[in-house]
């Protein structure tokens, strides 16, 4: 994006969020399809799958919850699994508290509802340039598109169901979506180390229940990044 195109009003920032997220939101279509198919496999109706995507709006957590529902796990375990997989949103939300401090209560609730990895990463990458007046609108524009694409693609996945051939390996589009967001976040040595430690610990703990390795890996990675940054200052 050229500097001349920098937004100066909230509606322009919203529009920029919509435009910048479009290619990324194309990438979550396979993710939504996979989730819709997983919902069918877990015994949900098309209406339930679509409602779940609209309300819960959390790809990785929905996939884990659906696996557990399909396996006949008890209700507390399904809820606990979602809690653990989504614990990262506590961190995202904490990071967003100050940038969102000036929003009205209603917009804060909307911003919280629309929070996902993609608009969080987009906004954190541009917050310094846009500031607290415009950056939340960039985030809301991106979040609105992401939510719409997510619900529509889960619905489509539930309708198409088993007609999507396994040989397409659509499930691989899921990590690729996250990879696209991860690479720009690796801006210096501490963040690179944070990613390496976080990723490798999560991989080593991939057998733990409820994907809790994801959260433990994130904690280890964050600690490693902070350690390297502070070491460089001494």
């Amino acid at each position: 994006m050229k500097p001349s195109a920098a937004p100066t009003t909230p509606p322009q920032a919203f529009g920029r969020g919509v435009l910048q997220i479009l290619p990324i939101s194309l990438g979550i279509i396979p993710f939504g399809l996979v989730t819709g198919i997983a919902g069918l496999n877990a015994g949900l109706s098309v209406a339930q799958i679509t409602f779940m995507s609209a309300l819960v709006y959390a790809g990785a957590a929905q996939l884990v919850a659906l696996q557990l529902i399909g396996a006949g796990a008890g209700v507390p375990f399904v809820l606990l699994a979602l809690l653990v997989v989504n614990l990262r949103y506590l961190m995202y939300s904490s990071a967003l508290a100050r940038p969102f401090a000036a929003l009205s209560p209603r917009l804060k609730a909307l911003a919280a509802f629309l929070m996902v990895d993609q608009n969080f990463a987009l906004m954190m990458g541009q917050y310094e340039a846009l500031g607290p007046r415009l950056a939340p609108w960039l985030y809301l524009g991106a979040g609105t598109v992401l939510w719409g694409v997510w619900v529509a693609s889960s619905y489509a996945g539930a309708l198409l169901g088993a007609q999507v051939p396994e040989g397409w390996s659509l499930d691989f589009a899921v990590p690729l979506c996250f990879l696209v967001l991860m690479v720009p976040a690796l801006r210096n040595r501490p963040s690179l180390l944070a990613a390496l430690v976080g990723g490798l610990v999560a991989t080593a703990l991939v057998g733990l229940p409820y994907r809790s390795g994801l959260f433990l890996g994130a904690l280890a990675g964050i600690a490693a990044g902070v350690w390297l940054e502070n070491r460089g200052h001494r």
């Binding site: 990785a60 990590p175 991860m182 976080g198 990675g221 964050i222």
Partner: peptide, 24 residues
């Protein structure tokens, strides 16, 4: 120190979503 830690959330978390799919 927590503010500093929050800056590493995206890299560490996203890698935890990516690497297991490539390495396992």
């Amino acid at each position: 120190v927590l503010q500093q830690a929050l800056r590493y959330v995206p890299a560490a978390t996203l890698a935890g979503l990516v690497l297991p799919a490539l390495l396992t």
